[in-house]
Every structure is written in C-alpha cells, then in structure tokens.
Computed example of a mutant assay.
Amino acid sequence: MTGHTATPREETAVRTWSTPALTVLGSAGALLLGGTGLFLAALFLHVAPSNAVSQRYRSEVDQVVYPEFEQNWKLFAPNPLQQNITVDARVQTISPDGQVHTRDWLGLTAQDIAAIRGNPAPSHVDQNLLRRAWDFYDSTHSAQDGTVTSGMRGKLAEEYLKRVALQRFGRTADGERILQIQLRAGTAEVAPPRWSQEQVSTEVQYRELPWWPVDDSDHEGLG
C-alpha cells in the first residue's frame, strides 16, 4: 500500500478555530478596544473645555492623565510657550578652617536638556521636575519683590524648589559643607521665524531669588 503525500493545497488549508478559542480572542479584542476607547476619552476630557462630564469625572481623568500624559494646552485654545526659561543655582560653602566660599552658578536646566537630547525615551523627571517646581514657585510669589502671594502654598513652593536644587548638589561641594543656596531664573523670548516682521528682544533677563539657609532637615528623604 502506497502512503499518501499531502499536496501544497492541503498543507495551506484554512485553520478552523474552536468555539472556546474564538470566544477568548473576541473577548480580548473587545477589552483592548474598550480600554483604548476609555483612554482616548479621558485624554479628550482633559484637554477639552470644562463641562459637566469632565467636572464629574475629574478625579478619574487626572489619575489616567498625570503624570505621563499631561498637556499644558487646551483643545480649542492652544497657548504654546513663548518664552525659554532656564533655572540656575549656586551655593555657599564653608571649609574646615571656617572660610566661606561662594560657588559659580550651575545650570540645572542645562543638565536636564543634556539628559534629554538624543535620548529616545527621556525620563519624565528630566523633562518636568525642575520646570514644574519653578512654575509652582512663580505662581505663588510676586515677580516684583518675591513676596508670598498664597500663604502656606508659597512656603511649600519654596521648600520644594530648594530641595529639588539641593538634590543636584548633595550635602557638600568639593568636600565643603553647604551653608546656603540661591537660585535664579533666566527668561528669554522665543525668536520669531525668519519670515516674520515681528521684532522681539531675545536677551536673557535674570530674576535672582534670595539666599536660603540649608540644614540637615533639607536633605531628609533626598536620594
């Protein structure tokens, strides 16, 4: 008796899925589509103008959006940033023989930009931690004289910004203990495109904050 050899047509016959397999595949597809739809709906409610639905589910929407998918613009009223803001810091240290030294400015924003540039998956911390800390401070303090404009939130903003900066230095600088830290923000208008007739000064304007004393409590919890 001669054995039967399968023909190419028989080898490429359409596979028949069992009912349980079709049920599992269908359920998985439905879950993926449903999850994608809910995610897109949450993003839409986040950027859309305030309405009854977005107010009702604000907490749930924030849990989906923050911090990875945050936007700083609104769907129907885009307001892109028109200024470049950089944050620098410097410290005063004391040597073992009691001499106090004021260190040079350290570009904190420049450090973040260097960590982001060329990185296909930049850290959210490198992109937003320092920027949000400065925004928090700026929104709670007067730009004219630096006075607190929102009570306890202003003091919290100062502590937060100081600790973010201290995390870059540590407890010492060149082996000397840090006594004080000072920050400054440089603001420059974004230059208009070449075809524009608009005249804008791109000179950096600096805003220096006062010296803040540093003690052991400022380093608690910092990595």
Score class of each variant (00 low, 15 high):
Val65Asn: 06
His46Phe: 14
Pro122Gly: 05
Ala28Trp: 06
Glu159Arg: 10
Gln55Cys: 02
Leu75Thr: 11
Arg184Cys: 01
Ala28Pro: 00
Leu183Pro: 01
Leu32Met: 06
Leu179Lys: 04
Leu25Met: 07
Val47Ile: 09
Ser123Lys: 14
Ala21Cys: 02
Ala28Gly: 01
Trp212Met: 15
Trp73Leu: 07
Ile116Gly: 05
Leu222Met: 07
Asp135Lys: 10
Ser95Met: 00
Ala114Lys: 15
Gln55Ala: 09
Ser139Phe: 02
Ala114His: 07
Ile116His: 04
Leu222Gly: 01
Glu10Phe: 00
Trp195Val: 08
Asp104Asn: 15
Glu198Ser: 11
His124Gly: 10
His4Leu: 07
Asp104Ser: 14
Val125Tyr: 15
Glu68Val: 05
Ala185Ile: 00
Glu60Asp: 14
Thr109Ala: 02
Phe69Lys: 04
Leu31His: 06
Leu43Gly: 03
Leu75Phe: 13
Glu158His: 00
Phe169Glu: 05
Arg153Asn: 12
Glu203Gln: 14
Lys162Asp: 03
Val24Ile: 14
Gly221Leu: 05
Asp97Val: 06
Ala185Gly: 01
Pro49Cys: 04
Gln55Thr: 04
Ile178Thr: 03
Leu179Gln: 15
Gln71Thr: 13
Pro193Thr: 07
Ile116Ser: 06
Val61Ser: 12
Ile116Asp: 02
Glu60Gln: 15
Thr149Gly: 04
Ala188Arg: 02
Gly221Ser: 09
Arg168Trp: 14
Ala185His: 00
His4Arg: 03
Arg184Leu: 05
Leu130His: 08
Tyr66Ser: 13
Gln71Trp: 12
His141Ser: 03
Arg153Phe: 13
Val53Ile: 14
Thr140Lys: 04
Ser95Gly: 00
Thr36His: 07
Gly37Ser: 12
Pro67Gln: 10
His141Val: 04
Asp216Gly: 02
Ile116Arg: 08
Val214Cys: 02
Ala30Trp: 03
Ala110Met: 06
Thr140Arg: 03
Asn128Ala: 13
Glu203Trp: 00
Gln167Lys: 11
Leu40Asp: 01
Glu176Gly: 02
Glu68Trp: 11
Pro122Glu: 14
Ala157Gln: 05
Glu70Ala: 06
Arg132Cys: 00
Asn119Tyr: 04
Pro192Met: 08
Arg168Met: 09
Glu158Ser: 05
Ala188Asp: 05
Leu129Asn: 12
Thr16His: 04
Leu222Gln: 07
Gln182Thr: 03
Gln63Asn: 12
Pro20Leu: 13
Trp105Asn: 01
Leu81Trp: 02
Asn128Leu: 12
Leu209Pro: 00
Asp138Tyr: 07
Pro192Asn: 11
Val190Lys: 15
Asp138Ile: 03
Gly29Glu: 01
Gly98Ile: 05
Gly186Asn: 05
Arg103Lys: 10
